[in-house]
C-alpha cells in the first residue's frame, strides 16, 4: 500500500531491537524504502550535493566573513581568484559572500513555500476525500481552476499590487519574504490536494479503516491516525518536487527584477544584475546560475529516488 512506510517509520525506533542474527535484520517498511532509495545512485549523489549546498549556505557565512555589501572599486568585475574565490561584481562586492547569503534566502523560500503548499494541499485534499458529494465536487472544481491559472503572470500581478501595502506592516525584507512564500505556496498545492484525495478515496474503503470505525473511532480520529499517515508517501515525493519548483519560481521573480529588493542578493537577483555584463564578466552569471541548477537538479533526483522508494505502483 502506498506510503505504509511512514506510518511505521514513526514507531520503528521505539520497537525493541531485534536479535542481531547474521542477515536476519527485521525488514521494516522504512528499511525497505531506504534499501530501494539507496539503489538510485543519482539520488544518493544528489543527497550529498544538496547536503553540501545546505551546509555551505548555513555555515559558510561563519567561515567566510567578508560583508556582502563591501564596495571596492579597485576590484571591479574580477574573475575568480584567491582573494575572491567567486570573483566580484561591478561594484567590487565579493560574490562568494553574496552567493552564500542569497542561497540562504533562496533555499528558505523553497522550503517555506513547500510547507505552505503541503499544508493547504493536505487540508483541501483531506476534506474533499473524506466528504463525498457536493463539498468534494466544489473543492475539486477549485483545484482544477487553480491548475488552469497561469502562475507567473498572477505572481507578478499579486506582488505588484500588494508589495507596498505589506511593507508598512512588516518591513521591507520580511514582507517580501512572506508575500513570495505565501503566493508561490498558494499556487502549488493542487497536485498535493489531488494526490491526498485519491489516497483517501482508496484508503477509506480498506478493512483497517472499517475496523477502526467499528471500534468507535470518530471521523477526525480515523483521518488523523489511520488514513492520513498512510497517504503521505506520494505527498512526500510531491513535496520534494515542490521545493525545486518554488526555488525556480523565486529565482524567476528575482531574475525579472520583481522579487526581493535590490540590496538582497538572492541567486536570481545576482543573475538579473549579471545579465548586462555577460560579455566581460561571465563568471558573475555562471556561478549563481549553476548554483540554482545544481540545487534544483539534486532535489529533482532525490524526488525521483523517493518515488522509487515510496511508491509501490511505480512502473517496472
Amino acid at each position: 500500500m502506498a506510503g505504509s512506510t511512514l506510518a511505521s517509520a514513526t514507531d520503528s525506533p521505539a520497537a525493541p531491537a531485534p536479535p542481531r542474527d547474521a542477515r536476519a535484520l527485521r525488514s521494516t517498511p522504512a528499511r525497505e524504502a531506504w534499501r530501494r532509495f539507496r539503489k538510485h545512485k543519482l539520488a544518493m549523489a544528489s543527497c550529498a550535493v544538496l547536503g553540501i549546498i545546505i551546509l555551505g549556505v548555513l555555515l559558510g557565512p561563519l567561515v567566510w566573513t567578508v560583508p556582502i555589501d563591501e564596495i571596492d572599486f579597485t576590484a571591479r568585475l574580477e574573475p575568480p581568484s584567491l582573494r575572491h574565490p567567486f570573483g566580484t561584481d561591478d561594484l567590487g562586492q565579493d560574490l562568494l559572500a553574496r552567493m552564500l547569503y542569497g542561497g540562504r534566502i533562496s533555499l528558505a523560500v523553497g522550503f517555506a513555500a513547500m510547507a505552505v503548499a503541503i499544508v493547504v494541499g493536505i487540508l483541501i485534499g483531506a476534506v474533499a476525500g473524506i466528504s463525498r458529494g457536493s463539498v468534494d465536487a466544489a473543492l475539486m472544481w477549485l483545484t482544477d481552476l487553480f491548475l488552469s491559472l497561469p502562475e507567473l503572470p498572477l505572481l507578478l500581478l499579486i506582488i505588484y499590487l500588494f508589495r507596498d501595502g505589506l511593507k508598512d506592516v512588516l518591513g521591507a525584507e520580511l514582507s517580501v519574504f512572506v508575500l513570495i512564500v505565501l503566493v508561490i505556496g498558494g499556487f502549488r498545492w493542487m497536485q498535493v490536494a489531488r494526490l491526498v484525495r485519491a489516497q483517501f478515496f482508496s484508503l477509506r474503503e480498506k478493512e483497517f479503516v472499517e475496523a477502526a470505525r467499528a471500534l468507535g473511532a470518530s471521523t477526525p480520529r480515523v483521518v488523523k491516525r489511520h488514513i492520513l499517515p498512510n497517504s503521505l508517501g506520494p505527498v512526500i515525493v510531491a513535496a520534494t518536487i515542490d521545493v525545486a519548483a518554488a526555488i525556480i519560481a523565486e529565482s524567476t521573480l528575482s531574475f525579472l527584477g520583481l522579487g526581493f529588493p535590490p540590496d538582497i542578493p538572492t541567486w536570481g537577483r545576482l543573475l538579473f544584475d549579471a545579465k548586462d555584463n555577460l560579455d566581460f564578466a561571465p563568471h558573475w552569471a555562471l556561478i549563481p546560475g549553476a548554483a540554482i541548477f545544481l540545487t534544483v537538479l539534486s532535489i529533482n533526483f532525490i524526488g525521483d529516488g523517493l518515488r522509487d522508494a515510496l511508491d509501490p505502483r511505480r512502473v517496472l
Binding site: L42, A244, I248, S251, T252, F255, G268, L271, K275, L278, A285, G289, I292, F293, V296, L297, N300, F301, D304
Partner: peptide
Amino acid sequence: FIGFSLPTFFTGL
C-alpha cells in the same frame, strides 16, 4: 532531468 532542472532564464543566458 537536466533539461527541466535548468531554469529558462539560465538556459537563455
